[in-house]
Design a protein around this nucleic acid. Structure first.
Lengths: 224, 224
DNA sequence: GTCTATATCGCGATAGAC
DNA sequence: GTCTATCGCGATATAGAC
């Protein structure tokens, strides 16, 4: 072990964790190709050569960043989604509440769990908006597709009479909107002259619930 | 001029256009940082050094790709948007028709005007989902922000009693959804096992109109 | 004016010294 | 476990061929 010789030494993060933190920051800001390993090494405060020791390739490093927090994150989303059901039937859950339950952990983790989580979530939103042919999104897909599929399954139970394709399109529209918000392009900040802030995820969640509930209900009624 | 000596010679594209075509293709698939000038040169069928002759930097090339089709594209969107008004009042235009009018040229150009346009539109959708701090989105913003602002202005007239911020959030959600669709991540293809195809922009447009009309109406009613 | 060859320098990756 | 040296590829500036 690197930095823990004696018993009462500072429990300082080891190099591997420092690298993951730095990579998380840089990848979330610049994307996979826009990030350089040299920049990641500098921000992590470790020597460049060490990256190759812990993570043979840049792709391995990216995957490790995704994997590190994946279980805690996807678990929180699924728990929150199923928590809103209570003991009853999915058909009794208001659609807006259902949507907000799924995304509540995103907002909480991004706002209240420190910059690491905020960076992580932005990194994931970037990956979600990337073509599936890119090799670096494979790990993201394998890890988080089950969450999306679970949500889709819940939607099917919530709208048992809706056409299946309308469920899929609804989920796609919703995913696009939330990812756009999580990337924080600051487009809405500019258009609104600061009235709306893309960093204000609480407001995003508050608006997103009724907005997409209305859209889903309309589509499910077959009015397309 | 490079390749047109006589009168009856084949009107072959000159190198500059070939480079722009190749760059459009590569940028739309891999993004700015994921694309290499060598790849662009190879796909354009020109020598690498020629890129530097016509476009000093990769950024200049990217900007030129955006600029080449910008006027025709934004003009078509604005014309279609204002065409749906007819001679009457914005408040009389159905919201779904208004949304579909804005995006109708996107679908038409992407599906019926050749691969160059399809690539161009995907490239723009990528840029729209990129943080505004990235230098390479500057040209995109300057060129297409007026279109978004015009649409926002129309929405304000269509919903004169809505809170301003709800107009901005509505536009943001809509932009996120359409960009996600135009990037064609193929996420919906996988979730639906091929039932829905992200390349099927006609269906996207058909679903998107009623879906987002319902969302906007709900938000405009103040039910957030 | 158009195009090619080449050199410089930063980046990803690796073998090996300490 | 950490750092050095180095290689091949990336972006790009330049000299000069046509």
């Amino acid at each position: 072990m690197p930095k823990r010789s004696g018993k009462s030494e500072k429990p300082r993060k080891d190099s591997r964790e420092l690298i993951l933190d730095g990579a998380e920051t840089v990848f979330s800001e610049k994307g996979f190709y826009g990030s350089t390993t040299r920049d990641i090494a500098a921000r992590s405060g470790v020597h460049l050569g060490l990256l190759g020791y812990y993570f043979p390739t840049k792709l391995d490093l990216y995957r490790a960043v995704i994997t590190r927090r994946a279980e805690e994150y996807s678990g929180a989303m699924l728990a929150s989604l199923h928590g809103v059901r209570g003991g009853g039937d999915w058909e009794d859950v208001p659609v807006g509440a259902l949507i907000q339950a799924l995304f509540r952990p995103i907002v909480d983790f991004s706002l209240n769990r420190g910059p690491g989580w905020k960076n992580y979530i932005r990194l994931l939103a970037r990956a979600a908006n990337t073509r599936r042919t890119e090799p670096y999104v494979q790990t993201f897909m394998e890890t988080f597709n089950p969450v999306s599929l679970e949500f889709i399954d819940v939607l099917k139970q919530r709208f048992p009479n809706a056409a299946e394709e309308d469920i899929y399109w609804s989920q796609s529209f919703l995913a696009g909107a939330i990812n756009h918000a999580l990337i924080e392009t600051e487009a809405v900040d500019r258009y609104s002259n600061g009235l709306c802030k893309s960093s204000d995820l609480e407001t995003v969640l508050a608006k997103l619930g009724p907005f997409f509930a209305a859209g889903m209900i309309r589509l499910a009624q077959g009015e397309s």
